[in-house]
Nucleic acid binder design. Structure first.
Lengths: 211, 211, 211, 211
DNA sequence: AATGAATGAGCTTTCATTCAT
DNA sequence: GATGAATGAAAGCTCATTCAT
């Protein structure tokens, strides 16, 4: 009896998740196509094949949905980069960071919609939230944990690891947005070597010189 | 007779300029207070003490006004930094750049409204436009001209001066936005030394090593 | 259970039909009173006791409503004339046509609002559409079908039955508009014998003289 | 001295006439292009290269201008037909009327803009006014005078010449509007023989059979 | 939980008209 | 007489949100 109820609840939960997911997908495609401002809740539910009222069972308003969507998309992006990086070994901390940056940048170059969406909406606050998110799959283990572990394993010490990460992320985000979308003032291929050089500079500069 | 006519024309023109200016001011203060998206043209004209229709005699729509406002505010900001820098001599190119950056950052720290507005709306495209703007006062002389002259006078040579400027500007813009407004992940005073260090790194890295 | 659901659906549908009807009525009375051009959607919904947004659930805009209204009113007008004609037998095709014309004209004379509205807005295109409309009551049977059947039954043959109808309808429409509303250049009673004479002339003239 | 003043007044009057004419022309071309309803006074004065206020020195509002324009255009149209008819002699009254009708119809077929404008706006009231207009050139001699003279000269007598004219004009106006603009339900070439036949029928029918 | 008709505040934009110059 | 900046009422239309079913 209990099992049966669980079964039913599970079914309902699954249905709810599907609805939520459908709203997410519909919203994302519309946000990309017409921009967030020009996408109405009407548009979203129409695209998701639901009644208007249903939207409010899942999200408070459009901006609530947007915020949750940004987090989801950013988590997805970094998880992917992490997976790619796990298949390799790196000579140094710098190289690992550059590899992950490159992976993220390439993904954004492939999916310009995604770039547009994330770059425009990603504040450090949101990014911070993403960093500390513990996903189901990683089992109580966040990106930031990984970052700290990486530093520890490198045997090196930095003045302010969070500031270091902040500068790197902001530099990547700001430069890539314009370069990928507008090819201005240089192409992505021209930017990359200089950008990665600056990233290495940042890391070295922030290193604590002991002794 | 001609002088009298000129006088009349001058009066009308002056009145028109004042109206335009009033709309600019009203819009800016409202954009700051409630955001661009949540500021309606009704709000703007009410604040500026005009009839709604008058708005359309001066701007095509809200976004036309916004674009013109960004340019005006950014030009103002840089002109001020330039003036400040002219009172001093600098040991090197790096130091002049850092001085100007510092001047701009301090101004934005003083006027957080301005920071919010510029930082959110300043794309490289718009900034580029500002760079090439030749203001009345400077007499056919743009910021970019000044930047190039500075490089020439330093006697040094850089791989891609525009890319160098782009990276510096984007890094400043992106990091200061969050640090000034949220004090996250560090305070402005903590950010400055590291940021200026990175700026110096970028300049050195982009230098053409001849010989 | 099924019946109950049907009942519910029926209720909703009925309510919607009532709303639509209320908009129709409100619009018609306002169109008559102040003209279509001077009737705003605000006026219509106020008269119909609804919120403005509701209008757009039923019609695309004012002209969409107008077009549907013309068709509805014209169909109504002709249906009535047809019903009246069914109670009688006629010595000839001409006399039947004249009878229907007279019925329509009398109705328009009674309801000058209706005349004003139909006469001003009825193009041959719209009228054609009305002619081919198959109403629910007549069960897949249009006015034009009736007209053709009438010709067939008369045993006579006409060069271009559609052109014949067109000329008759346009002549009636154009002359009655002015005569009924302005009594110029003659009264309706003075017009009728001459008009009906011309209609008979038109019919005879278009007859195919075989043999 | 007096002559000089007259000269000045003449000059001013001429200037005024030119302004009025310019407004007429501008309005007509815009009415044709975009419809009367969608043409604003702003549009008209812009097209006529004048200031907005100037409009009100010549016309009360848009509809005042429109009414005067219809009269002017209709007078022009009929004057032209009359001139053409004067170069010929006709075997009968009917044939003269048909000739004038044909001349008018051909002109409207050439200039569909004109047709659209006149046909939509010409009521019998306005037409009546045109009929009785005594133009400068004809020297106190109206179209209606010409029509009456024509009847007199034909030596025939009609029950109600005004009603006869009314029916003919309305029939032409109504049928040609649709046929020329839409080619529905027949082409103009197909309509003409039947239409002219009906016109002849109308004339014969209205003839007083004496004796 | 899901629906979708209804709401009405509020938006942008137009435009006839006025009036000081 | 001519101008055109200014007005502000009023139009069409959208849309987040509610709520009875």
């Amino acid at each position: 009896m209990q099992e049966k109820q669980e079964g039913i609840l599970g079914k309902l939960d699954k249905k709810k998740k599907q609805k939520r997911e459908a709203l997410f997908e519909a919203a994302f495609s519309l946000f990309m196509e017409k921009g967030i401002q020009d996408t109405s809740i009407s548009d979203i539910v129409k695209q998701a094949n639901m009644a208007k009222g249903t939207f409010y069972l899942y999200f408070r308003d459009k901006f609530d949905l947007r915020d949750k969507l940004i987090v989801a998309k950013t988590v997805e992006l970094f998880k992917r980069a992490e997976v790619e990086s796990m298949a390799q070994v790196f000579p140094s901390f710098e190289e690992k960071v550059v590899f992950i940056a490159d992976s993220v940048i390439n993904r954004l170059d492939e999916d310009k919609q995604l770039l547009k969406f994330i770059s425009k909406n990603l504040s450090w606050g949101v990014f911070h939230h993403v960093l500390l998110t513990e996903t189901e799959e990683t089992g109580g283990y966040s990106f930031y944990d990984g970052y700290c572990k990486l530093i520890r394993e490198s045997g090196r010490s930095f003045r302010n690891p969070e500031l270091m990460l902040f500068m790197i992320v902001e530099l990547i985000n700001a430069t890539c947005h314009n370069v990928i979308l507008m090819q201005e003032p240089v192409t992505l291929e021209e930017l990359k070597p200089e950008l990665y050089g600056v990233i290495r500079d940042i890391i070295r500069r922030m290193e604590e010189k002991s002794g």
